[in-house]
Simulated assay, not measured.
Amino acid sequence: MKHLLIALLTCISLAAMPQRSAASNLRTRISDDNRTLSIQLDGNQGGRKIHLSETFDVTGMNPVQKEFLKYRTFRSVGVFMPIREMPWLIFGPLCLIIFSVSLLVVRYQTKHRGLTRATLM
């Protein structure tokens, strides 16, 4: 149980670590009016100049599809998307991890209680 808790805290701390300082040289502007999604990147990263100005038609796309479109756009220029721009991509897996850990804890406690009761009788 202790090892499981340590692993969970390690995962959370790695996710919360700040990104590389080179990313702070980028200026990011993303606007979405539910019809068009505009992404603009300007700055330097790793010694190379980055300039991107893209506009996409997002009519009929759900929020998750828009997040994946943003992610692919950032990756196309070799830049990691800032964490603040990925709420849907982080929230889903994080909820799944928390649910799985909770399920394992409940299962462990139920199994442990059953063994304790069996030894008392």
Rank of each mutant, 00 (worst) to 15 (best):
F68A: 11
Q19D: 15
F80H: 07
T55G: 04
F68R: 07
Y71I: 14
S38G: 02
V101Q: 04
I98H: 05
V64I: 12
A118F: 11
R84I: 03
S31H: 02
L103E: 06
R72C: 01
R75M: 12
L96T: 09
Q40N: 11
C95H: 11
V58I: 15
C11I: 13
N44Y: 12
E54Y: 03
I98P: 00
S76K: 15
F80T: 07
K2Y: 08
M17L: 14
R48N: 01
R27A: 10
N25C: 00
E67F: 05
Q65M: 12
L120I: 11
I39F: 00
R117P: 00
H3K: 14
L120W: 06
W88K: 06
S31V: 04
V77E: 05
A23I: 04
V77M: 06
T73R: 06
D32L: 09
V79A: 07
L94W: 09
I83Q: 14
I90K: 02
Q45G: 01
T59I: 08
D33F: 08
S13V: 14
A23P: 00
V101P: 02
I30K: 03
R84A: 13
D32E: 09
T119E: 15
G60V: 02
I39E: 00
R75N: 08
T55M: 04
L26V: 03
T10G: 12
M17I: 11
L89F: 10
T55K: 11
S21C: 01
S53T: 14
V106S: 07
